[in-house]
């Protein structure tokens, strides 16, 4: 979105994130917007068989995320999600990595027990929709 349409359109997503998590829980990373660093999951890197290099590439992103002190990072697509999730474990920042739809549904109280694969213990049991349907 941002790359095709520029930074202003990404402000709409910031509005969504702020609304969902609450202003006090939103932390932008530095640098941000078009100055931000790529995580290293895209461009085919995840499937290129160059794991050591991919993790080294991602170190910059991981440092940046850890510096925010945030307990969750929202990833915009699957490539980013897979890469940042791996960075969180590999560099032991152990922050959660979630899709935006997970947090939207959590905030609306409609996130069921089987839709929480990427939530950590702090949110796993919060506002569970139809907990009896847990598989």
């Amino acid at each position: 979105m941002r790359k095709s349409y520029g930074d202003p359109i990404a402000e709409d997503l910031r509005f969504v994130v702020r609304s969902v998590v609450g202003e006090e829980n939103f932390i932008d990373m530095t640098p941000n917007r078009s100055n931000n660093y790529c995580c290293g999951g895209g461009g085919g890197f995840l499937q290129a068989g160059l794991k050591d290099e991919r993790l080294e590439f991602g170190k910059l992103k991981d440092d940046q995320i850890q510096q925010t002190g945030a307990s969750y990072c929202i990833a915009g697509c699957h490539n980013c999600h897979a890469q940042i999730h791996e960075l969180s474990e590999y560099y032991e920042g152990n922050y959660g990595v979630v899709h935006l739809w997970t947090l939207i549904c959590l905030s609306l109280g409609i996130l069921g027990p089987n839709e929480r694969a990427y939530l950590h213990d702090d949110l796993k049991d919060v506002l569970v929709f139809h907990p009896e349907s847990e598989m």
Binding site: S34, C38, G43, F45, L50, E53, R54, F57
Partner: peptide, 12 residues
């Protein structure tokens, strides 16, 4: 194959 073509270099 290690450059993700993220375009930050073009931006700056």
């Amino acid at each position: 194959w290690m450059c993700t073509m993220c375009q930050r270099c073009v931006y700056v």
